[in-house]
């Protein structure tokens, strides 16, 4: 999978560290909570998002401008990291960024099945993946889902099982296709990481932990809908760190939340979700938020351990996305009239 060359770790990490200093501090979010939307827009116009805000201001306005500009800035930042890196490092960054290509493919498929126009689909894509703008535009311009899947298949080397394509053709639902894409992304990402060095093992561990988190969320989401255990198992992504098929099956077939809790205790992040599980509010919002905070905390803890590795780059990318998400949470929260306490709960700090 990887090229022979190890990659320009020193150069890329140095550039990423320089960018890290441009990130908004946690105190900025507190200040933003006290501002209204025009003030937030103006403040962002004076930060690293200045260029994107100015570029899009003619076409989009208000909170949509903030959302699109921050996404575009994040995409540019990720693309430039990908372009400046070489060798094995580049391969790993590219594999990680493929999530945005998969995300864009899902957006295109959904919009195409709905019948949205080409321009509005292009507007909704996040150009943060490893694929080029030309490739994305080509996908958007294709007429049928079959053509889009064929083109993506050729570019990414993903083979869509005939049963899944047939299932889509028969009922028009993208459920199986999207779930297949999510599983494929993680499978390929895990396969692409060479665990020969400690930093890459940490990277792999982090992705495995992310899979565990997604699996726990999926199980709880489906359990809340009273989906039987057997029907839950096909949605489990393989390759988790602690949540293997056996444990996943136990959780999926558990009769109650108490029964699940005893199994969940085996997972590293149990302490972070124990309170939420006890509260049993009937909503997964708090749980998802707790798991997201745990993930960020984990990424931060190991980011300083290996300065010349993929780890600080990964940490930057995760935190950049969190920053973009937090800005959007505040901006949209303010426009929607959500109170500051609710917005604060939604922030990942």
């Amino acid at each position: 999978m990887f090229g022979q060359k190890k990659g320009n770790y020193a150069y890329t990490v140095a550039r990423v560290k320089a960018r890290k200093s441009l990130r908004l501090g946690d105190d900025v979010y507190t200040k933003m909570l006290l501002m209204d939307l025009p003030e937030i827009s103006r403040m962002l116009g004076e930060t690293v998002y200045q260029k994107e805000m100015a570029e899009l201001a003619g076409r989009i306005e208000g909170v949509d401008l903030i959302e699109h500009a921050t996404y575009r800035n994040m995409a540019r930042s990720f693309r430039s990291i990908l372009e400046m890196s070489t060798g094995q490092l580049r391969d790993m960054i590219a594999a990680n960024l493929t999530r945005w290509d998969y995300w864009n493919l899902k957006v295109i498929l959904r919009a195409k099945t709905f019948g949205a126009d080409v321009e509005s689909i292009k507007e909704d894509l996040v150009p943060a993946g490893k694929e080029s703008a030309e490739f994305r535009n080509m996908l958007v311009s294709l007429d049928t889902v079959g053509d889009i899947l064929d083109a993506f298949s050729k570019a990414e080397g993903v083979t869509f099982p005939a049963s899944i394509v047939e299932s889509f053709k028969s009922d028009g639902r993208l459920t199986a296709l999207e779930d297949f894409l999510d599983k494929t992304y993680y499978q390929r990402l895990l396969d692409s990481i060479d665990p020969s060095s400690k930093p890459t093992r940490l990277f792999k561990d982090f992705i495995k932990m992310e899979i565990d988190i997604i699996n726990v969320e999926t199980i709880l989401k489906l359990k809340m809908e009273n989906v039987p255990g057997d029907a839950i198992m096909p949605f489990i992504i393989e390759g988790g760190k602690q949540l293997d098929n056996r444990l996943a099956s136990q959780l999926a077939n558990a009769d109650s939340l108490e029964a699940m809790s005893s199994d969940l205790k085996r997972l590293d992040f149990y302490e972070d979700i124990a309170e939420v599980l006890k509260a049993d509010s009937g909503s997964l919002r708090s749980l998802v938020s707790s798991l997201e905070k745990y993930k960020i905390r984990k990424a931060r803890t190991f980011s300083h351990l290996y300065p010349l590795s993929i780890v600080p780059i990964l940490d930057y990318m995760i935190n950049k996305q969190v920053e973009v998400d937090n800005i959007r949470v505040i901006a949209r929260g303010k426009v929607s009239g959500l109170d500051n306490n609710t917005i604060k709960e939604l922030l990942v700090i």
């Binding site: 028009g172 779930d179 894409l181 999510d182 029907a231 997964l284």
Partner: peptide
Amino acid sequence: TPILDRGYGVISTSAYIEE
């Protein structure tokens, strides 16, 4: 509508959108 019949992927669609 049951979550499995909604039309979008179960794994990646967040609990916020589902709610």
